[in-house]
Simulated scan of single mutants.
Amino acid sequence: MMATSITWIYACRLANTPSRRHAVNGRDHFAFSDVRRIVTKAAFDDNFTLLCPPAGKSVDNSVVTALLQLAA
């Protein structure tokens, strides 16, 4: 659910409406897969590591760990 929410938040902040990959007559709105395709293209960009650097050594935060265990 978190990944879906982040994807839709990203879609809301786009300057232009994404083009439809599978266009349907009478529908001018875009689908989740259209936004996911844009995110995938951005992730394979060479400059992606500037935005999301590779993960380093993880920091153990006992509060976050406990919350994640409760959610699982």
Rank of each mutant, 00 (worst) to 15 (best):
H22A: 15
N47T: 14
L70I: 09
V35F: 04
A11K: 01
W8P: 01
M2S: 14
A42R: 04
T49H: 12
A23I: 01
A3N: 11
A11G: 03
D28M: 07
P18M: 03
H29Y: 08
N61T: 02
H29D: 13
P54D: 12
P54L: 07
S58W: 01
L67R: 14
D28N: 09
A43V: 01
S5M: 08
A11M: 02
R37P: 00
K57S: 13
S19E: 13
L68P: 02
M1D: 10
V59R: 08
A42Q: 01
L67D: 14
H22R: 15
S19I: 07
V64I: 15
A72E: 12
M1A: 11
S19W: 04
R13L: 15
D28Y: 06
S19F: 08
N61Q: 05
S19L: 11
D34N: 07
A31M: 08
H22K: 15
F30L: 06
I38T: 13
D28L: 08
A72R: 04
M1V: 05
V35I: 10
A43H: 03
R27Q: 13
R13C: 15
R37L: 10
G26M: 07
D45Q: 00
C12V: 03
R21A: 06
D60N: 03
F32Y: 14
F32T: 04
T4M: 09
R37Q: 12
L67V: 13
V24Q: 11
A43P: 01
N25I: 01
A31D: 10
P53L: 03
L67K: 14
A15Y: 07
K41N: 07
D46H: 01
V35Q: 03
A15C: 02
H22F: 14
Y10W: 04
I9Y: 02
R20Y: 02
T40P: 00
N25K: 02
M2Q: 15
T17G: 02
T7N: 06
L70H: 13
D45L: 00
L51K: 05
A11R: 00
R27C: 11
V64G: 01
A31F: 09
C52E: 11
I6R: 13
A15E: 15
D28G: 07
D28V: 05
I38P: 12
N47P: 00
N47L: 13
P53Q: 00
G26S: 06
L67C: 14
M2R: 14
V35K: 04
T7A: 12
T4G: 12
A42I: 04
L50P: 00
F32P: 02
N47I: 11
S62G: 02
T4D: 12
G56N: 03
N16Y: 03
P53D: 06
S5L: 11
T40E: 12
R20T: 04
W8L: 07
V39G: 00
A23L: 03
I6T: 12
S19Y: 09
L68I: 06
K57L: 11
C12P: 00
L70S: 13
S33Y: 07
V35D: 05
T65H: 07
P54M: 03
S19P: 14
R36F: 13
V64L: 15
V64Q: 12
A11D: 04
H22Q: 15
A71Y: 15
A66K: 14
N25C: 00
T65D: 14
T7E: 09
I38E: 15
Q69H: 10
R13W: 05
A23N: 06
T65P: 00
T17W: 00
V39R: 08
C52S: 12
G56S: 05
S58L: 12
K41C: 06
